[in-house]
Amino acid sequence: MTEPATFLRIRDLRIGFGSGHEAVRGVDLSAERGETVALVGESGCGKSLTALALLGLLPPGASATGSAVLDGTELVGRDERALRRIRGARAGMVFQDPMSSLNPTTPVGAQIAEVLAIHTRMSRSARRRRAVELMESVGIPDAAARARQMPHQLSGGMRQRVMISIALAGRPDLLIADEPTTALDVTVQAQVLALLRERARDTVLLFITHDMGVVAEIADRVAVMYAGRIVETGPVRAVLDAPRHPYTAALLRSVPDPDRPVAGELPTIPGQVPAAGERIEGCPFRPRCARATDRCLTPPDLTPDETGGSVACWHPHELTEAAS
């Protein structure tokens, strides 16, 4: 290899459906151990599919090509047995709705212990003790008593903590969190974000969200997705303070800030995200972009700039330009 090894490196990941519709259209992304990368974009842009492909959990009918290498292990195109081993030992996932992944009729402690049975050779009683310890470690008060409760007896925040403890039980190298706080109150969201920040110090955390406010709270780096492609990446401060892609800039402007009320109307992005399967010539953002020119009829590639970021745009905002 000529390039330095990167802990997680995704190359030209494409996800298509039988109909010929390509929902993820060539994603490149890399991350170092301990880094939190936020994958951000509007619904339907391909965030969840990208994450699911890394774990071999794509929905029926979807197939992935390209490559994703996690510390030497290829994740794309593996058979189910290999994938199960990877999911157990190397990668964990937390979803928006913990109820969809928890068994409603089994006490939560027993569910954590079950996961430990897959990863470890602990005895039954040791697993049960460890499950309670894990629950304590994710900030669940009164963990011994909570361990005996059913998922529906816990609050949404507590359930998400249980999911996080399950995802972390195998000490994964990669933790994927897909909108894990979208359904929670802001107060509980702040707690769960703090927990993830603390517990993801040794893993790659791929954090999926549509909320730039959450990005600001959790990410080291940001990757902005639009219509199945990454259109901008960079260090979180650089991207949020001085977005270069017109879509990133527009997305940021449309988020109201409780400390900085705007007079009059909230800025919006004209038009809509392209419908599934809709073909757009050139840059996919072109129909909604105020900076578009004839040059944009050729699709721009994601090109590195001097800030440590990359942008896929022929006419990005200048680094010095206040994108407002």
Partner: peptide
């Protein structure tokens, strides 16, 4: 606790 779209 309200998120802000900028790095604090």
């Amino acid at each position: 606790a309200a998120p802000r779209p900028r790095v604090r």
